[in-house]
Simulated scan of single mutants.
Amino acid sequence: MEFLVDYAGFLLKLVSIALVIGFLLVILSSGKRKAQPGSLSVTKLNESYETMKSELDRQLLDKKVLKNLDKEKKKKDKQEKKALKKGHHTVEDSPKKRVYVVDFDGDIKASAVETMREEITAILSVAKSQDEVVVRLESGGGVVHGYGLAASQLQRIREAQIPLTICVDKVAASGGYMMACVADKIIAAPFAILGSIGVVAQIPNVHRLLDKSLIDVELHTAGRYKRTLTMLGENTEEGREKFKQDLEDTHGLFKRFVSGQRPQLDIEAIATGDTWYGSEALENHLVDSVMTSDAYLVSQYDKADVIQIAYKQPKGMAERLGLSFFSALEQKATVWLSKLTQTRGY
């Protein structure tokens, strides 16, 4: 038993030393390592769809029907090649429309904007005016600056005069809807949640608890409104009024942005912080049509090359050293604290 105790103590020391060395390597590498470029994944969704369809045909249809379908396909391909030659185009130079598909899964910090900005830059380097960008958007909103940047990234597509379509299958609320309204066309699933054009802020205050415990907190600022409300100090009525005014100003900015993008909206009736399901959102002009993103993309397969673009960030040193658990723990803690103390969030 004494041997086992000693051995367990030795293992604990070994693990502790390994963790310390790992953290030191992360700190050292973060200061010296040059930023590594990410990678771009390009997937032609037409091919996946055709492969799936062909497999089902092979399993469900008899040989005679399959043979006829194969003949029809070859005939159609031959006709398309002739049409291209008459138009003085080669197959490689086909003027066929391209639909670029990007996914945005938003958290409270709009962290996905870091990959979306790279994807948009890549698309704009090759896209033509006949093409289209489809963003499958899912977000319940978050911090103002994060979603403001995300909306600005989508505006780059509009400024390049490339048609932009936003598809919402589940939710595009608050900051998520601010992004969606940039699009030329918004498509939502029947039960997707849209709207929530409002601003929210909450700050816990433990001043009375500290006061009972005879704990003083000193806060020194230069500038009358450098800090309006605090978590630890005593809040004043003047500070509360300024904080509320800041929220109203931000809400006004939000409303002006949305109404500028979608002038058909009755912005005063819509910007109450309320939400609507897809079908109701259509009646209130929050969206342009009701269908799932899958249905919309399938409708494009025959007339366009549908291409999914995904940018992958390079792995950090923590992940490469197997310390991703600590990174995930840090992210969870950040989200929790943001929810607890968030200010001026869309």
Rank of each mutant, 00 (worst) to 15 (best):
D216S: 14
A122L: 03
L28I: 13
L25R: 10
F104N: 02
K303N: 08
K63Q: 12
S94G: 08
I307E: 03
M291A: 05
K63P: 02
V335F: 13
L232N: 01
V91H: 04
T230C: 08
I197D: 00
V290D: 02
S299Y: 06
G22R: 07
L194W: 00
L340M: 13
L25C: 14
D93N: 15
V15H: 08
S213A: 15
L247Q: 09
L286A: 05
Y277V: 13
V171N: 01
A18L: 13
K128N: 09
Q202C: 08
S16I: 06
Q264E: 15
D57N: 14
S259V: 12
D274H: 14
T51N: 14
L45E: 03
I267D: 03
D6L: 10
K170Y: 05
A18E: 07
G106L: 02
W276C: 03
G322V: 08
I123N: 03
V306Y: 02
Y346Q: 06
H220I: 09
E248P: 00
L84A: 10
H220E: 11
M52S: 14
L19E: 08
L154F: 03
K67Y: 10
A269K: 12
V171W: 00
L323S: 02
N46L: 03
A304L: 01
Y225E: 14
Q261P: 00
K63E: 14
E72Y: 12
D184A: 07
G87E: 15
I120Y: 00
W336D: 12
V15M: 10
Q161W: 02
L210G: 04
Q342C: 08
P163W: 00
K75E: 14
R320D: 06
T236A: 05
G322A: 09
V298M: 08
V217K: 11
E80T: 08
E2T: 06
I17T: 14
C181H: 00
E92M: 06
K339T: 04
E234F: 11
L210D: 01
F326I: 09
K73A: 11
R344V: 11
D266S: 13
V199P: 00
K13N: 12
V135C: 04
S324V: 06
A304E: 02
T115R: 10
S299E: 10
V65P: 02
L164G: 02
K242E: 13
P190A: 07
L66R: 12
L286C: 06
G22S: 15
S16L: 09
V290Y: 01
S139N: 12
S139T: 11
L56P: 05
I193P: 00
N68T: 04
C167L: 09
R136V: 00
H207L: 06
L19C: 12
K185W: 03
G239C: 05
L209D: 15
L253H: 08
L194F: 03
V134I: 12
A8L: 11
E218D: 15
K53D: 09
E319G: 02
L265C: 04
L253D: 09
G345I: 03
M1I: 09
V171I: 15
K86Q: 10
K71F: 13
G260S: 09
D77Q: 13
E268C: 07
M1C: 07
Q261L: 02
D105G: 09
K73R: 14
R344F: 15
L297T: 06
Y49M: 11
L66D: 04
I267W: 02
L66P: 04
K244S: 09
V113M: 05
G260I: 07
L282Y: 10
K86T: 04
K242A: 13
L321I: 03
D302A: 11
